[in-house]
Amino acid sequence: MLTSPRTDSLAPPDAALRARSRCSRRTNGPSTPRLQHALNTFADSPRQALEEAEDSFDEAVVRLTNTLAERRRVLHEGWQDPDPDTQSDGLRLALRGYREITQRLLRM
């Protein structure tokens, strides 16, 4: 069983995302079994292979959407701390996290 990467306030938000991303690539990499199957069966049944590839793509979009929603939640929690002693550092880390994830999305 895989354990989730640490996403609590002790782990920098960008580190938590990178760890989750590495874990996702190992278990659900770009060649999911369904996509690989579609690639392997294209010559025999192209339309069915394309439907399977599309389903695989849709699953990847759902996983990405869920990952981004979780990332947003973690970032949001990072700057909601009312303690003035940690607020400046938390705000800086949250801003860096928003910048990094937004830049990665824009590079797609």
Score class of each variant (00 low, 15 high):
Thr7Trp: 02
Asp8Met: 05
Asp8Asn: 15
Ser9Arg: 07
Ala11Pro: 01
Pro12Asp: 11
Pro12Ile: 09
Pro13Ser: 14
Pro13Cys: 09
Pro13Thr: 12
Pro13Ala: 15
Asp14Ala: 08
Ala15Tyr: 06
Ala15Met: 13
Arg18Phe: 02
Ala19Leu: 11
Ala19His: 11
Arg22Lys: 15
Cys23Gly: 12
Ser24Pro: 04
Ser24Thr: 14
Arg26Asn: 09
Asn28Leu: 13
Gly29Glu: 12
Pro30Arg: 15
Thr32Asn: 13
Pro33Thr: 13
Arg34Gly: 10
Leu35Cys: 10
Gln36His: 04
His37Pro: 00
Ala38Pro: 08
Ala38Ile: 07
Leu39Met: 14
Asn40Phe: 01
Thr41Phe: 01
Phe42Val: 10
Phe42Ile: 15
Asp44Pro: 00
Asp44Phe: 10
Asp44Arg: 12
Asp44Gly: 14
Ser45Ala: 15
Pro46His: 07
Arg47Gln: 11
Arg47Leu: 14
Gln48Ser: 04
Ala49Ser: 12
Ala49Glu: 08
Leu50Phe: 10
Leu50His: 08
Glu51Ala: 06
Ala53Ile: 05
Ala53Val: 08
Glu54Asn: 09
Asp55Leu: 08
Asp55Asn: 09
Asp55Trp: 04
Ser56Pro: 00
Ser56Trp: 03
Ser56Asn: 04
Phe57Gln: 07
Glu59Pro: 01
Glu59Asp: 14
Ala60Trp: 01
Ala60Asp: 13
Leu64Asn: 10
Leu64His: 04
Thr65Ser: 15
Thr65Ile: 12
Thr65Gly: 15
Asn66His: 10
Thr67Tyr: 09
Leu68Arg: 11
Glu70Thr: 14
Arg73Ile: 04
Val74Ser: 07
Leu75Phe: 05
His76Tyr: 05
His76Cys: 03
His76Trp: 06
Glu77His: 07
Glu77Lys: 03
Trp79Asn: 01
Trp79Tyr: 13
Gln80Pro: 01
Asp81Cys: 00
Pro84Cys: 02
Pro84His: 00
Pro84Gly: 02
Pro84Leu: 02
Asp85Arg: 11
Asp85Asn: 09
Thr86Glu: 05
Gln87His: 05
Ser88Asn: 02
Asp89Lys: 02
Gly90Ala: 10
Gly90Leu: 01
Leu91Asp: 03
Leu91Ser: 03
Leu91Trp: 06
Arg92Leu: 05
Arg92Lys: 08
Arg92Thr: 05
Arg92Val: 01
Ala94Gly: 01
Ala94His: 02
Leu95Asp: 13
Arg96Asp: 14
Arg96Trp: 08
Arg96Gln: 06
Arg96Ala: 11
Gly97Asp: 07
Gly97Ser: 11
Tyr98Glu: 08
Tyr98Gln: 04
Arg99Leu: 04
Arg99Val: 02
Ile101Lys: 00
Ile101Asp: 06
Gln103His: 05
Gln103Ala: 05
Arg104Gly: 07
